[in-house]
């Protein structure tokens, strides 16, 4: 079976948010240069087509909820 990867603006999406572990604090949204993160009261996700895999969200997350996965994120 063929693996299907999510597509960012710059190729394979490599940013993976783990919503079950998230506190929805918004650090990542505050540093995202592309407005590529949607954050509601208790819901968070990457807007794939805007993301450039810059990883600033990964660096700013206080509780290790956002992972950089260089192999790409699967659907």
């Amino acid at each position: 079976m063929e693996l299907k990867y999510r597509q960012a603006k710059t190729g394979k999406l490599m940013i993976d948010i783990l919503p079950d572990k998230c506190d929805f604090c918004g650090c990542c949204v505050g540093v995202c240069p592309e407005d590529a993160i949607e954050l509601k009261e208790a819901e968070i996700y990457i807007i794939d087509e805007r993301c450039t895999n810059c990883a600033k969200c990964v660096w700013s997350c206080p509780i290790e909820v956002i992972k950089f996965n260089k192999n790409g994120v699967l659907f």
Binding site: C27, V31, K56, V58, W59, S60, C61, P62, I63, E64
Partner: peptide, 10 residues
């Protein structure tokens, strides 16, 4: 963030 990227605040 420059510190957090190496060791998370947590």
């Amino acid at each position: 963030g420059s510190v957090n990227k190496k060791k998370y605040a947590q």
